[in-house]
């Protein structure tokens, strides 16, 4: 049995606004193996995205423990979390979140900016990542000049440029038509199969979920089996 990439132990997340407490995620325990491709499914507002944010260390759990690549996250220090995000995790979002004022290649380079790398090396890695998603020829375009599918491929290139062990994708095909969605799925599958990356994907598309190794379902912030 291979090692665990992610281990959630009785994790809960509660938001407090004014006097109302909202429980977004409740008592979730989940193990994800390294090299696994996992889909998280559930209706809107069930807490899928919150769960993904917790895994991606964008959010801190109110209770419970998170293990990332065999290491327990005990710190809430901004600097350490930022380093972990940078080195271990790559994000892909539903709405791409590309910076419209930067060219494609500069967008892909962004994660490398927060590492100590010479400019030429950054550029080389960014180009390689773009080649992997088949967009090397669009390197010097602005994101707005690309189609939605192409933009999402740029976002994937950005997610993998730092060679993270884990790729987190939040409804990566949600804004795309089925043809482009297939393409993106193909790329994510390739990453998982050929590159050995752990891919965790949030989706509410059963068909896409079926293409993964394992599906977990969330309802009202809780795992349903």
């Amino acid at each position: 049995m291979s090692e665990l990439a992610i281990q959630l132990h009785e994790v809960s997340k509660t938001y407090r606004t004014d006097r109302i407490e909202t429980v977004a995620v409740h008592d979730i325990t989940l193990d994800v193996r390294q090299g696994e491709m996992l889909a998280i499914m559930g209706p809107s507002g069930c807490g899928k995205s919150t769960l993904l944010n917790l895994i991606g260390l964008l959010d801190e759990p109110s209770e419970g423990r998170i293990n990332l690549l065999g290491e327990e996250i005990r710190t809430s220090r901004d600097r350490d979390l930022a380093r972990l995000r940078n080195e271990s995790i790559g994000f892909v979002f539903q709405s791409f979140h590309l910076i419209p004022d930067l060219r494609v290649v500069d967008n892909v380079e962004i994660p490398l900016l927060y590492r100590k790398l010479p400019a030429a090396e950054r550029r080389r890695l960014a180009e390689t990542a773009l080649e992997r998603v088949g967009l090397a020829s669009r390197m010097h375009h602005f994101p707005t000049q690309l189609s939605g599918g192409q933009q999402q491929r740029v976002a994937i290139a950005r997610a993998i440029v730092g060679e993270p062990k884990i790729v987190l994708a939040d409804e990566p095909t949600g804004n795309l038509d089925s043809h482009m969605g297939d393409e993106i799925m193909g790329i994510l599958e390739g990453l998982n199969r050929d590159g050995g990356s752990t891919v965790i994907m949030v989706t509410h598309d059963q068909e896409k979920a079926d293409r993964t190794d394992r599906v977990v379902r969330i309802f009202d912030g809780q795992l349903v089996h």
Binding site: G56, L58, D78, R79, A82, R83, R85, N86, E87, G90, F91, F93, H97, I99, I110, P111, L113, Y114, R115, R158, G162
Partner: peptide, 11 residues
């Protein structure tokens, strides 16, 4: 996004 890909608050 910058925070997500590893920029600290400081940065």
């Amino acid at each position: 996004l910058r925070r997500a890909v590893g920029a600290t608050r400081e940065r």
